[in-house]
Design a protein around this nucleic acid. Structure first.
Lengths: 390, 390
DNA sequence: TTTAGCACTCAGGAGACCTGAGTGCTAAAA
DNA sequence: TTTTAGCACTCAGGTCTCCTGAGTGCTAAA
């Protein structure tokens, strides 16, 4: 079932060309454009076999071939060459990401912006799955009698605030007591481990009358639990319209529709999350058969001339693999960035199936790498300064 | 130059019909569908005159007529009837907006969502222009040595936080001192009146060494000044694709492109803001000639059966009036909601020029009214509870 | 196993034709 | 003076036919 050398060569050239031109590619054209050392008849025979094996499709009898989902998958897994970023571009991206970033949300916004601009597709950046991060601080600030601001600070550098109603009788000192009690008992816990009962028992010690506590207890609990409900960033929607596959308005609409559904992206990325988790369980076994429709490849250091980028795991989902009606003509390349404490978040690029995978992968890998570097550096700085103080 | 009775009638019917069908309307069709008491020949003559006066256009010689920008303007100013919301729908909207709203941002998100769903167009909601609102509180929370969280609370119920670097040597107590000093000196000031020098002199009293102060002074100043940089909400992008005027991908793209440009919406709404300001300066003179391309109408209380809605000022910009390349085929209906302290924010609905103005106006007016009620009620509650305590 | 050659297919563009909804104009009727 | 009936005219858009050329599969020879 494996493809022989010629078939691989021809499949690669076909996909390359189709990515470039968006036109079905024919045998004669292929031979002349790429100076293949065989005749067009031979190419025709090979194409015919590739079609029988499911790597190519023919829009109609008398037209050239177009890659199928399977063809693209073979291409991204075994055939394509990832071009590395020219150093100048890499430097530009690094600078764009590095400038004045104190918060993870700023970093995500930048990352998404850079990705959509440099790839010409649509990009998303999602905050880390905060249920796994630790609660650092909870502050209650009196805004005016009856209303307070709850600020929740998580270990991943995420901050969430919300205004809540509180009993009119609670004073600023009461609020201070309450927040101190919560912090004393819950700080350091993982978000997912915090229960209502935990909050309840934390507040038991405050010697405040029960009725006053009840309302704020509930508010504090939901504020903490929902503190992972952070914004995601999506850029480059208009980019999609430039590609011929979306000239047909109904397809374009399908995609825009899907992307506007809040939950969808999270769902797609949850899939990856689960896969990642599973992968961590296993001892890194490069020999293990990867599941059919997931790509994980490792990049080595590049040779001189390229931009260095450590091994980097990404996932490519092509067409049907997205299992999402309306996105059959799209591909989605995603990767994860990591925060201290085993936290992960996602960045991804969505484009037509006919996307320039090589370009997207090199960019997303570099952005990911830069993000990881920045995050690690920032963590290191903090640790250092901490040590210095002691 | 004014239109006589028949011309008005016919223009109204044409626009009504075109809004409904999106097809150029012809004379014979018009007479039979609407049982006009004249013959098609008469209608033809009238149409011809309306075209000469610029209210109608003919896509090509042998087709029916289509309203021009001027035709739509005449329509929205003098011809259309605004249908009021059926009470059931009004109730639904009110409930959707009312539930669990403690923050202006939540209210805006809901308002935008409701508007896009009920009108079937695209909707936006922008936060109030915070430069006019007062600084209520500034808190500095230590996250870890070298990093702090600045929380800025404004009078309009807006909260903004950001993480900043601080000198490692600053302790939590120092931060408390600093925030107290800032609050003591600046609380109650309008955002636009706060200068760097003001922050500087506020911190003079803290007896902290100057070098430590410099950095945080700058951070605090920018945090305060940028605290009006709040999120806007945009919903219903996919709705636009359902309308025939956007079947042509290039137009759709233009619109999506425009709307993705961050500044655009603010620019469009700034225009309205200036107009509003100007209007407030003037003693409410209903006799004054309104500027050519702005609509301001007052609604009275509705009669029995309708939903009550206080007088409500809105602005309609049609096609060219938007002065925005790419939006020539769109109209934008906007209105302002008000917060205590003369603060205003915007909500708006953008759709094809051929939008159902009546429907949009009744919905946007009702949403605005409901928002104002909610905000006022919330303010009243707070004041009351405040008084009770004293 | 590869290639040259040939017959075959078929999307898509060009041109001819037709239809029908719609117009403007004119002359008669009100 | 205004309205209407009637008629000739226009033209977008659907349908039909034809043609072209890029592309194929198959076969027989190299």
């Amino acid at each position: 079932m494996a493809l022989d050398h010629r078939k691989k060569d021809i499949l690669k050239v076909i996909v390359d060309d189709y990515i470039e031109t968006a036109e079905p590619v024919g045998s004669k054209y292929l031979v002349s454009k790429y100076h293949l050392p065989v005749s067009s008849a031979t190419v025709r025979n090979t194409m015919s076999e590739l079609e029988q094996q499911g790597y190519l499709e023919q829009p109609h009898t008398s037209s050239g071939r177009v890659p199928s989902d399977k063809g693209y998958r073979e291409y991204v897994e075994n055939l394509m060459q990832v071009e590395w970023l020219p150093p100048a571009e890499a430097k530009g991206i690094r600078m764009a990401l590095t400038e004045q970033v104190n918060e993870i949300s700023t970093l995500l916004r930048r990352a998404s912006g850079v990705l959509s601009e440099t790839t010409g597709y649509l990009s998303v950046a999602l905050p880390p799955q905060a249920q796994g991060s630790q609660l650092l601080q909870v502050k209650l600030l009196m805004i005016e009698p009856g209303r307070a601001l709850i600020v929740v600070v998580l270990s991943a550098g995420q901050v969430k605030d919300r205004i809540v109603r509180i009993p009119d009788l609670l004073s600023a000192e009461d609020l201070l007591k309450i927040s101190q009690a919560i912090e004393a008992n819950l700080a350091g816990m993982k978000l997912k481990d915090i229960t209502f009962v935990a909050v309840q028992s934390a507040l038991q010690g405050t010697s405040l009358p029960e009725p006053l506590l009840n309302q704020i207890m509930y508010e504090a609990y939901t504020a903490i639990k929902q503190s992972d409900n952070l914004d995601s960033y999506l850029n480059g929607m208009p980019n999609l319209f430039a590609h011929p596959e979306f000239q047909d308005i109904s397809r374009a609409r399908n995609v825009v529709d899907k992307l506007s559904q809040e939950g969808l992206l999270f769902g797609l990325l949850d899939q990856q999350w689960e896969t990642e988790q599973a992968a961590r369980q296993l001892p890194q076994s490069p020999a293990g058969d990867p599941p059919e429709n997931q790509t994980r490849r490792r990049f080595g250091q590049t040779e001189a001339g390229g931009t260095d980028c450590k091994p980097c795991r990404y996932m490519i989902r092509i067409g049907q693999e997205l299992q999402s009606e309306g996105l059959e003509d799209c591909s989605f390349v995603t990767t994860t960035y990591t925060l201290p404490g085993k936290l992960m978040g996602f960045i991804g690029v969505l484009g037509p199936m006919r996307m320039n995978y090589s370009r997207v992968i090199s960019h997303i890998s570099f952005v990911r790498q830069t993000m990881d570097d920045l995050i690690a550096r920032s963590a290191r700085l903090n640790r250092d300064s901490h040590n210095r103080e002691q």
